[in-house]
């Protein structure tokens, strides 16, 4: 019982803080300006709630797309039963992770122009990597006796993957989604450097004008959202009871 309270309690605190931050923005801002002694209460063009909404939208679209494509790719690779394809995909993924996200964003601007598109692409690509990797490792981690039993009972290849391996790979998969989501929430802030919306806007504005209040206004919701997402996904990860 105590553990239950601990996990959900923290989430609640994060969530409530987030709501409070959004609801009471101007007052918080004024207070912060007072504390810091610097920074002018800029008249912002977009209210914070809009920015948060933009941010959530960006992250959700990119991550959702990555989940669909990533899981699909992982399943397809598994179904092909080709070790070569699997190792190629994994090598590609490892390579992709080495390339810095800022570089991806910068490179996609000439292709897609300014705005939301570059960051969407970058977030999508970056979320795919852990999802595909975890899909594959989750599917692979299913004990061979289980797959052998399934085969012995008469499952076809496809049925085996979908009905046996995939459900068992769920926890690992959720972990991959969690990683991708948390990273994306933070990384989405970079979009503001190339004209996207979201919470990166006040942060960049704050950096450009040496205004700590603006930076905080933008950063706190991002961090809170990331923490909430992390906690929520951790708690809905099904516990694997199979040894």
């Amino acid at each position: 019982m105590a553990k239950y309270i601990k996990t959900w309690g923290l989430t609640l605190i994060y969530g409530l803080s987030l709501v409070w931050w959004l609801a009471d923005t101007s007052r918080i801002k004024a207070q912060l300006v007072e504390w810091f002694g610097i920074g002018s209460p800029l008249i912002e063009r977009t209210p914070l709630s809009t920015l948060v909404w933009q941010h959530i939208t960006l992250v959700s679209i990119a991550t959702l797309a990555a989940i669909l494509v990533g899981i699909g790719l992982g399943l397809a690779v598994r179904l092909s039963r080709s070790e070569e394809l699997e190792s190629l995909v994994i090598r590609f993924g490892a390579l992709g992770e080495t390339i810095p996200s800022a570089a991806v964003i910068a490179l996609s601007v000439p292709l897609l122009g300014y705005g939301n598109e570059p960051i969407l692409l970058a977030l999508f690509l970056y979320a795919i990597l852990p999802i595909v990797r975890n899909t594959l490792s989750g599917l692979n981690s299913v004990a061979p006796d289980i797959t052998e039993a399934a085969k012995g009972m008469g499952f076809t290849e496809i049925q085996q993957v979908f009905k046996v391996e995939f459900p068992l790979a769920f926890p690992t998969l959720i972990a991959g989604i969690r990683t991708a989501l948390v990273i994306n929430i933070s990384a989405a802030t970079l979009g503001a450097t190339v004209g996207a919306g979201g919470l990166g806007v006040p942060i960049i504005a704050g950096i450009r004008t040496s205004d700590p209040v603006l930076v905080l206004i933008g950063s706190v919701p991002v961090i809170l959202m990331a923490l909430v997402a992390d906690r929520v996904l951790r708690s809905i990860t099904p516990q694997r009871s199979i040894p």
Binding site: T189, L190, G200, I203, I207, S210, P212, V215, A226, L227
Partner: peptide, 13 residues
């Protein structure tokens, strides 16, 4: 978890 940008901004102050 915190965005690099935030850390940058916050450290500057």
């Amino acid at each position: 978890v915190a965005p690099t940008l935030s850390l940058l901004g916050l450290i500057m102050i």
